[in-house]
Design a protein around this nucleic acid. Structure first.
Lengths: 209, 209
DNA sequence: GCAAACTTTGACGATGGCGTCAAAAATGAA
DNA sequence: TTCATTTTTGACGCCATCGTCAAAGTTTGC
């Protein structure tokens, strides 16, 4: 039952580390430091798992990144979809931007946005990584199109839903960059509100309840 | 007159390299590789100037970056201002986005946007660097506010000039990220046109001549 | 109970980065 | 002419990273 250790303190045979916990830590390190600036040693230190064990379990840094990025992307898209699922369009879009802004300003120092950091990281230009980011943004755009196509939104937009969705997704990427530069969440929210006003400037603005 | 070489091939006494040419090369390397991923050795190799000479002339990597970034920012803001200086607002904004898109898609592979790469580079988080980026974006925003405040624009905007300027600058940053991910300049231009339509959706759209 | 498969560990050599330094030589001012 | 200044060069020591590997031990299946 109880694991024994050999003369070097080695326990072996089955995986010794809690995978969920370890992957969570690893996501955190990538998120804060960025893909390119993170070494396998950084991950080993942060998790308490030896470098060799990580190589053994996950092949290499790229595979490990893709593994944790998938979890990150799933959670992000799901939460964004939840935020968008509001009866009032303006409210839905505000919640959407609030979610993205809160996500990137969390942590000390603020961790920023993993997908954007990775997208602009010259050391993360492998095709599988870029494909993963594309996949996430495509899903995000899809969720946005769905929301903007609902009856309550359609008549109020200054451009068609598909165009609007692309603008909004692009805008969230810009917001991420501005966060890095100005470190001012309130400023980001204000800019997001301006964006929403532009989008909904078209027609019949309902009274705010 | 003619420089002589010592037994090691050394020429010394005055600066041996063409500073303009060297700084141009260095800007290019930073632009393509990003600040964090660029080593002093990379710069030495790219310019043909020895590592020690670069240290001697420019102190360290950060100072060198700030030096070439200043030139880059000056040129970028000036060219953006030129693009904005069109009689028709829509045309001005289209030219503005065309300029930024052309700037980032130039080169093979496309070099992207230096300020955005740097803003999201975790290894470029020193305050002087962040201040330099802020300075450039502030100037860009200023030029945009100026253009949007002209009589021909004021009446057509769906939000006030200062708000619109901030949205548009943020949008250019987002465009940069989308370029990295999708590598499709035409897509970027289409998104920019949608953005402009949203902004100008307010009132009296003049006939296109 | 035995053998095969798996995990952990520490070490290996190669590579490359960093910032510094002294030697060598050319320049320009006194 | 002389001498202080400047520039270039190659080498220095230190440290981190990389991917791999064999040894050791545990677990599982037979």
């Amino acid at each position: 039952m109880a694991s024994k250790m050999n003369y070097r303190g080695v326990m072996a045979g089955r995986r010794q580390f809690d995978e969920q916990h370890t992957l969570g830590r690893i996501l955190d390190v990538f998120w804060h430091q960025g893909y390119g600036a993170t070494s396998m040693q950084d991950l080993a230190t942060a998790t308490g798992v030896q470098r060799g064990s990580l190589y053994n379990a996950y092949q290499d840094k790229e595979s490990l990144f893709l593994r944790v990025f998938a979890d990150y992307a799933d959670a992000f898209v799901a939460d964004a979809g939840t935020a968008l699922d509001q009866p009032d369009v303006r409210r839905a879009l505000e919640d959407f931007f609030d979610f993205t802004i809160n996500s990137m300003t969390r942590g000390t120092p603020a961790r920023g946005c993993l997908s954007t950091k990775t997208a602009t990281d010259t050391q993360a230009d492998a095709e599988p990584i870029r494909a993963a980011i594309r996949g996430m943004l495509d899903r995000l755009e899809g969720a946005m199109i769905e929301r903007l196509s609902r009856p309550d939104a359609a008549g109020r937009l200054t451009v068609p839903p598909a165009e609007a969705a692309r603008v909004l997704v692009t805008m969230t990427r810009g917001t991420v960059v501005m966060e890095r530069v100005y470190q001012d969440p309130e400023r980001l929210r204000a800019t997001a509100r301006s964006m929403i006003t532009m989008l909904l400037a078209g027609h019949r603005e309902p009274a705010v309840t």
